[in-house]
Design a protein around this nucleic acid. Structure first.
Length: 359
DNA sequence: AATGCGGGGCA
DNA sequence: TGCCCAGCATT
């Protein structure tokens, strides 16, 4: 059966949005570049988290060209703490492509946009509808939740193919006069009213057009089956000092936390495994003094794995050349390097209890 | 289709 | 603790 409330739904939704929309920094511009930046930052990331990052990022890289010319390590530093760091590199690659191939003008069609690095179906639709006011779908988890309830769609949203059902639904529902506002209204509704748990149906502006509310099972939707499995990993982390400098290494250019910096880490199969000698061999150093053995056990949870880190403060001497990507840095130099959060946590502990201790 | 990829907020 | 969040690239 065809959804019978298309006209009322889109009109009430957009009117509600015009009254109640959130005041967000990227809503004061129609610059496709800035919309693009905001949408990439918002991938799998909460609005409140993104806001300060977006402000600083646009201050530093106000134009497409300025980002295209940015130093990659500096760029990663701007992204530090935001997560999914390949987004930053892909964004810059995409921006460079726009400068070279499109003369600095962000494409205004889905075909060209989706060929840009880091731009998928959602981000392309968001840019097209918000910056260019084109009637294009922008389906993310938020939209799937809202529309699964409004249209009572019971397909499993953890299956990739299900997204197409929602794209088709948006194609029919989208407000032809206010496509950008319509898409953003779905987001705001999902964030403020149609929340994952305890949706506030009694405050909802489109309650009377919501099939899920009529059925009384809106809060049971969407259907999502896939579970996340996580595994434990164990490491010894060595804060190795020599003459006021600290041994540091850059992670590989691909994979987890690519190109970010860290204290040397030795993986362990078992928490009890001893890695002191393998550490000396791998880094070409000799441990001359153990200052604090296991001064903290630091745990860090990623979405797909957990790091369990035993941290040791030691003094070392250098025997031969370091492996590539390993070097001594001063505390000052370290501040300019992009650190993943687990390393920043350890750094904070060091600053509070070791380096700045009154003794 | 399945998996890898961060980090924080929340019940 | 487990789930969720303005997803995308890779295989």
């Amino acid at each position: 059966m065809k959804y019978p409330y298309t006209q009322q739904f889109r009109q009430n939704l957009v009117e509600w949005f015009h009254r109640e929309q959130r005041n967000l920094p990227w809503r004061h511009t129609k610059d496709p570049y800035k919309i693009w930046v905001s949408e990439v930052m918002l991938q799998q990331t909460r609005v409140d988290t993104v806001i300060p990052y977006y402000q600083r990022f646009i201050d530093k890289y106000p134009t497409l060209e300025s980002l295209a010319g940015a130093d990659e390590e500096e760029l990663l530093k701007m992204w530090e703490g935001l997560g999914y760091y390949s987004r930053a590199r892909n964004l810059q690659a995409g921006v460079r492509e726009v400068v070279e191939k499109y003369g600095g003008t962000v494409p205004n069609n889905r075909h060209d946009l989706q060929k840009l690095k880091g731009v998928g179906p959602y981000t392309a639709g968001a840019i097209l509808s918000i910056a260019y006011n084109l009637p294009e779908h922008a389906v993310d988890g938020n939209v799937m939740r809202v529309l699964s309830r409004v249209l009572h769609i019971t397909e499993d949203i953890s299956l990739p193919r299900t997204r197409k059902i929602f794209e088709k639904a948006v194609d029919e529902l989208i407000h032809p006069d206010y496509p950008g506002d319509f898409n953003q209204a779905l987001m705001d509704l999902g964030a403020m009213i149609c929340t994952p748990v305890s949706p506030k149906c009694l405050l909802c502006p489109v309650r009377e057009y919501c099939l899920g509310f009529m059925e009384g099972d809106a809060d049971q939707l969407p259907i999502k089956t896939k579970k996340t499995k996580s595994k434990n990993e164990y490491y010894d982390v060595y804060i190795a000092v020599n003459d006021g400098k600290i041994l540091f290494e850059r992670r590989p250019s691909e994979g987890l936390l690519a190109n970010m910096w860290q204290f040397p880490m030795m993986p362990k199969k078992q928490p009890s495994e001893n890695t002191w000698e393998p550490f000396e061999l791998k880094y070409n150093v000799t441990i001359t003094k153990v200052l604090e053995e296991n001064f903290v056990e630091q745990k860090h949870v990623f979405s797909h794995l957990t790091w369990n880190m035993s941290c040791h403060l030691i003094e070392i001497s250098e025997n031969g050349p370091f492996p590539d990507s390993v070097q001594f840095v001063t505390l000052k130099e370290m501040e300019a390097l992009p650190l993943p959060v687990p390393m920043a946590k350890i750094m904070n502990i060091l600053n509070r209890y070791i380096f700045h201790s009154p003794e």
